[in-house]
Amino acid sequence: MDGKEKHHGSAFYFAIPRPTTLARSWTVFLLDQLMTYIILAAGTVSTEILYLAYKGDVNVTWSEACSVLDTFCRRATTSVGITFGSAVCYVLLSLVSSYRLFSTFAAPVPFLSSKSLEIAAFPS
């Protein structure tokens, strides 16, 4: 690597350094977005399970479990905190990835011709 190549904010670019292309940049951006949403969903589901462990649900006769499983609840709470911490890191990574994508490549320009512009109309 000659030091002149631009890299996006993903770990993919640091693991496999290659010249930046539009397709590769969009792929990495979308994968960063996907991972952010997956981690956020995992944290949300874990939080719901942890809430049920602490509070229970009387409607389905599910009693709280943290009085019996105190060690589990403390570890699960730590795990949920770490999950949301990593979600924040992925949000920041996605912001960097999107900034680099949109600052490196110009916006697509619509094809303009000298012919008149035709607009499709729907019959009423």
Rank of each mutant, 00 (worst) to 15 (best):
N59T: 10
A23Y: 02
V60S: 03
H8K: 07
E5L: 13
E118D: 08
A76Q: 08
T47C: 04
R75A: 11
A121W: 06
K55I: 06
F84R: 02
V88H: 14
A41W: 09
M35N: 06
S63N: 05
V96L: 12
R74S: 10
L69C: 12
D70M: 10
P123W: 01
A120T: 09
M1Q: 04
L40Q: 12
V28I: 06
S10Q: 05
S116V: 07
M1C: 08
F72P: 00
D70G: 02
S25W: 03
S116F: 13
V88P: 03
T104V: 03
A23E: 09
A53Y: 02
T78Q: 15
L22H: 05
V28K: 05
S113V: 03
E5H: 10
A106R: 14
V45R: 04
R75T: 05
K6L: 13
K6P: 00
A87R: 01
I16Y: 07
V58T: 09
E118W: 09
S10T: 14
Y37S: 05
A42V: 09
N59I: 07
T21D: 02
Q33I: 02
F111W: 13
Y90H: 15
D2I: 03
Y54R: 08
M35H: 03
G81K: 12
E48A: 11
L22N: 04
I119H: 02
S46C: 05
V45H: 09
A23V: 09
I119P: 00
S97D: 03
L34C: 07
A15P: 02
M35R: 00
S86M: 15
P19H: 08
L22P: 00
L31H: 04
L40S: 13
S113R: 12
R18H: 07
G85R: 01
G9Y: 01
D57V: 03
I38C: 02
D57N: 14
Y51E: 11
P19N: 09
A11G: 06
M35K: 02
F111R: 15
Y90I: 05
L22E: 11
K4F: 10
